[in-house]
């Protein structure tokens, strides 16, 4: 691989976007790539917009993905998929968690949660995977698994061996939840 791969992960503060990119960048490093990652901390805890850029390849300079250059976007929330869709390059792939998180400001005049974010996204690309990760996580018995399920979906767009993914997940998730998280990852990976 001599081209740099660009992955953008987006969501809302508190959803675990930063942990997901942490896992992804470790996986790419373990797979032997150079990797750079960029995000801005600060007010992320407080329900704000969170976006995190991961770029990997033989030799990566910029940690920022230019507008319109993302190969893959993973959106933890529907409106966030719409907000960041302009980052996707032509024929890029986006995976979207079906979840909606309506911000409190939607109760004020003049602010509305978007009508149908998925439809807007589909107008821009045909490569859309929709997944109800919240439901799958519930079925697996722990709502906190959303994160790993979504990484599983993302993994199908990247050519990195499953072994590396599961090894890094085992190392990084809280003790006692390793097998459950691997199961969640594989459920996401098998999702079509």
């Amino acid at each position: 691989m001599n081209e740099t791969k660009n992955v953008l992960i987006v969501g809302v503060g508190g959803q675990g976007v930063l942990l997901a990119t942490e896992l992804l960048s470790t996986v790419t490093m373990e797979a032997g790539y150079d990797v750079k990652k960029s995000e801005v901390h600060g007010m992320a805890q407080r329900g704000g917009v969170v976006s995190s850029h991961v770029r990997f390849g033989d030799n990566v300079f910029s940690p920022l993905i230019p507008d319109g250059e993302a190969d893959v976007i993973l959106a933890f929330e529907q409106a966030e998929a719409q907000r960041w869709i302009h980052y996707l390059k032509d024929n890029g792939t986006i995976a979207i968690n079906k979840y909606k998180l309506v911000p409190p400001i939607a109760s004020m005049k003049g602010f509305n949660y978007p009508e149908d974010p998925i439809a807007v996204v589909r107008k821009r690309t045909k490569n859309v995977t929709l997944i109800d990760a919240v439901q799958i996580a519930k079925d697996l018995g722990n709502p906190r698994l959303v994160n790993t399920i979504l990484l599983g979906v993302l993994s199908t767009s990247l050519e990195i061996s499953e072994d590396i993914w599961t090894r890094v997940i085992r190392e990084r998730v809280p003790k006692g939840t390793e097998e459950l998280n691997v199961k969640a990852f594989l459920a996401g990976r098998a999702y079509r």
């Binding site: 329900g47 917009v49 966030e80 302009h86 911000p103």
Partner: peptide, 18 residues
């Protein structure tokens, strides 16, 4: 080489008290 695409206008998520 960059051609920025049109942005969607989406409801903001301003920080508020927890």
């Amino acid at each position: 080489p960059y051609n920025p695409k049109e942005k969607e206008s989406v409801i903001p998520r301003p920080p508020i008290f927890c």
